Each structure stands twice: as C-alpha cells, then as structure tokens.
Simulated scan of single mutants.
Amino acid sequence: MREKKLILVTGGARSGKSSFAERLAKEAQKPVTYIATCQPLDEEMAFRIQEHRKRRPKNWKTVEEPFNPTDIIAKEGKSDGVILLDCLALLVSNLLLREKDPNDPKSFSRVIEEIENLAITCRSVKGEVIVVTNEVGMGVVPEYPLGRTYRDLLGKANQIMALYSDSVYLLVCGIPVDVKHLNRVLEKGVYDLQ
C-alpha cells in the first residue's frame, strides 16, 4: 500500500482537529515543520496563537505564513519530513480579505486557483503533508454576503484538498473518522470495515 502523502483533517469548531493533526505529525517520528496561517489581529487571537505554541514540541520548526504557504511547502517538502499546515480555513479567509472586492466572482476564482496550486504542491513534495481545515457548511446560512461567499469558497477549497488527499479525517467530538477510507470501502461494496 502506498504511503500516505497528503492528509486532510476537518471538523467543526473545537472538534479536536489541531490536536489530532499534531498527534499524527508526532507519530510519524520525522522532523516537523509547522506552518501557521493565523494572524494575531486582536488579543483573543494572540492568546490562541500562544496556546497553540505552548502545545507544540520545541524541536518543531514553526513558520508563520498567512498568505503563501505553497512556497514554504515546496521548500520544506524537499526532505522526508512532515509539514503541518494549520489551517486552510484561515488561509482562505486571509486570501479572500486581501482581495479588493471579496464578493467579486474573480476574487473567488483567484483564491480557488491558489488553493489548487497548494494542493498540487502538497502532492508533489517528498515529505508528508497534513492540512487542517474547518467544516463550515453544516451550520446556519450566514446573514451577510461576505459570510456566504466565505462559506462557499471554503467549501470548494475543502473539496479540492480532499480530492488530492490520501486520507480525509472528520473529527466529531474528538473522534477521528477517515471518511475517504469509508467512501472507498462503500464504493467497492465491501461492508466489513475491519
């Protein structure tokens, strides 16, 4: 069986996504590069960033890159290590809000093109890549156009990343389920999940 090269970890808020992704990275027993896309734009986000930093092992290399993790992955992925990108949802938000008119369909297309390049790069590197994202399409329809644009854009970005991924883990109450594996099993008509 082929080694898992790209793993997508998704779920709702506080579902355990980041902790699970960090556990996968540790279990690989390889050098880890952690790419953080969060920007400390207010006190609460600065606090969250500090908490994430405390949780990570000291020997992990951390790169804070809110807009262009693709270049970091291309560079760091030349070795046989693990790259953990946390998170795609914030990256999509950063890219969308950088646009002059976020609600313009051309803005949507530009962000999607960047996500497709990211997914292709993740597949092409030597190392293993773990990408964390949020599932935002299961809740209430956002009241404002920008919120709906973001929800639609992240949904499309998640689909692209899932397409390129070997495994897609959905975290529910801290429990990971490999939905891509389940999908393959069901497509084959095999119902013995062992």
Rank of each mutant, 00 (worst) to 15 (best):
Q29C: 14
A119G: 05
K78W: 00
V141H: 01
S167G: 02
L97C: 11
K106E: 15
S107T: 04
S107M: 11
R123E: 12
A74T: 02
R23H: 10
S165A: 15
G174W: 10
S79E: 14
D192T: 12
L90I: 14
G127L: 05
C38E: 13
L186V: 15
L118M: 09
V179T: 15
I175R: 09
P31V: 03
K26N: 11
A119Q: 04
L171I: 07
E27T: 01
G127R: 02
Q159A: 12
S93P: 01
F47E: 15
L95H: 00
N59S: 09
G139D: 04
L24G: 03
V132H: 02
Y150Q: 07
Y150A: 10
Y191D: 07
V185A: 15
S107E: 04
S109Q: 12
R53K: 15
R98H: 10
Q194A: 14
N117F: 09
V177Y: 11
L170R: 06
C38G: 12
E76A: 15
N158T: 02
E3Q: 14
S93F: 10
I130V: 14
S18F: 01
T70Y: 02
P66M: 11
P102Q: 07
T37Q: 05
P145Y: 08
A89W: 00
I115T: 06
R123C: 14
S167L: 06
V63E: 06
R23F: 07
P102Y: 06
R14F: 12
E3P: 12
I49E: 00
L88Y: 05
V177F: 14
R98W: 12
P142T: 07
L41K: 12
Y164F: 15
A162C: 06
K75I: 06
L97I: 14
V131A: 05
R55C: 03
E76P: 03
E76H: 04
P145R: 10
A162V: 03
G16A: 09
R53A: 13
V129M: 04
R98N: 15
Q159S: 10
L84H: 06
I35M: 09
A36M: 02
E3H: 13
M138V: 11
P66D: 11
L6D: 07
L171S: 04
L41D: 09
S109R: 12
P105K: 02
C122M: 14
R184F: 09
V190T: 12
R53F: 02
L97V: 13
T133L: 00
G139F: 06
V82P: 10
V141R: 05
V63H: 01
I175N: 12
G189I: 13
S165P: 05
I35E: 02
S79H: 09
E44M: 13
T149G: 06
V136N: 01
V172M: 08
K126V: 15
S19H: 13
R53W: 01
L171H: 03
S109M: 10
